[in-house]
Nucleic acid binder design. Sequence first.
RNA 1: GGCCCGUUGGAGAAAUGGUUAACUCAUUGCCCUCUCAAGGCAACAUUCACGGGUUCGAACCCCGUACGGGCUACCA
Length: 552
Amino acid sequence: MDPKQKIANAIFPSVTQSLDDLEHRYPPRNLPKGAMVTRFAPSPTGFLHMGSLFASLCSWRYAKQTDGVFFCRLEDTDTKREIAGTGDQVLRELKNFGIIPDENFIDGGAYGPYVQSERKPIYDIVIKSMIENGAAYPCFCTHEELDEMRQRQEALKVNPGYWGEYATCRNLSPDMVLHRIENGDPYVIRFRSPGQSHNKIMITDLIRGSFEMTENDQDIVIMKSDGLPTYHFAHLVDDHFMRTTHVTRGEEWMPSLPIHLQLFDVMGWKRPEYAHLPVIMKMDGDTRRKLSKRKDPEAAVSYFLEAGYPVEGFLEYLMTIANTNFEGWRLQNPTADIFEFRLSFDKMTLDGALFDLEKVKSISKDRLALLSAEEISGRALTWAKAYQPEFAALIEADPKKFSAFMSIERGGEKPRKDYAKFSDIFPIIDFMYPEYYDRYMCDPLPWNETLSKEILIGTLASYVTDPFLDLSESEWFERLKALAASQGFSPSVKEYKKNKEAFHGHIGDFAEIIRIAVSGRKNTPNFYYVLRILGVTEVRRRIQKTIALLQG
RNA sequence: GGCCCGUUGGAGAAAUGGUUAACUCAUUGCCCUCUCAAGGCAACAUUCACGGGUUCGAACCCCGUACGGGCUACCA
């Protein structure tokens, strides 16, 4: 028997299938021409990261806009870093954003399994065949030996790593290899690189274009001593047999592209296209760096969902980072569905964008302003149920009332933009609820200190008998001005400024007194609507309560 | 250190050889206004990291330098 064959059998005695069997099991996908097969491949090391959301959003859109397939594969081959249960969490979080993979590691699919640790039999078949044809070999070097070798290489100022003459296990005699395997010595499997570091190869990246890189000459590890594959090898096998057409991943993978290309070439497999996405950065002191899942709590998208940011704000923001012409498109199509926009690789930015929460807020305000009162009420309730039960209870006690609050100056050409996130709502409208109003009234009220208590009481008394809330907004305001005039306030701010001595104040000062009495604060949404929604009885009750407080 | 990628205002960026360097966010000012939130109108890069070169002409092409980022594992 061929010595390589013997080694292969010694390592994988129970592997009987061949590459051909795998080719038949995972045939090319039957998709329309131009359809892209993309994937998102998270490792189960925690929550959904902003950068991962960005990458999956892009990958998903590319697949969907070409009638292709987007799948999600769990890269759990690093058993040291794995955090149990976080894989499902990532899928759930993606779903929050409407990103639903066609195939994934929970629901499966025809090209599964989609969990790398469950794909070991597949990797074993490939590795066995690679050993048989000399493309891979076992390596028994210890960490200590490798460290020592690295030091020697550094002293010699040659490229560090396992290559060429330094790849000692490359040339082990078959008998020796067999002996050590039988002996139970630990080993890894390495790829036998046909490359030379003095060769240059052309790289084509869909986003960055073409450029030159050094050919790979490293005999990289493809199977670790625990029997699981390394990333490089899993990428090769999985993306080949899952029939990925476009590998979309973070730019941190760019330096290993020569390895991946070589792997595909040696196997004689068709190379996928590569698109290396920019990384999302954050400011750290006065330098910027990649947003880190370990150091930055805000790297977790759940952090923002908890804070009440709407998912569409994020999606929209990420789209502006993804394609530089997206903002222009949105300006032209303010109400269009975000996904009518077609992403393209050549409009992707090259350098990592600084994550800009101010811009997320602005975009979120715009998006929330476009919702109907019913929509935003429902969404706010969903959010509050999860994160602010006290608020949720108020909404649920009287959904119509809450919806009425939310309808103030909503709809029409220029809707209010008070809210960037759902958590902004309650602090703005809480005074509408009598129990919260009453609490505010226990605190000192922000009266204009230039006005005497008598004037305040006089003003309130003049309005409390008849708040004339059945008039239209403009009629109501005219009446209010007339009332102000009768109480010694100027109905016109300009006139007041010309002759301050003649008045207690102007219409704004007059209205402020009533506003404070009704809300306990100086600022409210459009006051006319606030009064109408509260209703005459409640308005009078509040004013009377205030008068009593002032008198007391 | 080595190898790659990148560098236009506070942030995201457009414009890839030819007048005043789009636009969005932020900031500032003014206007509107009963408050707030909006809205309207302005201002904000004497200049495209820096230094050379090519050219009648450069943010755009070439060379060098600086700076930033990524990678350099039996991590992904």
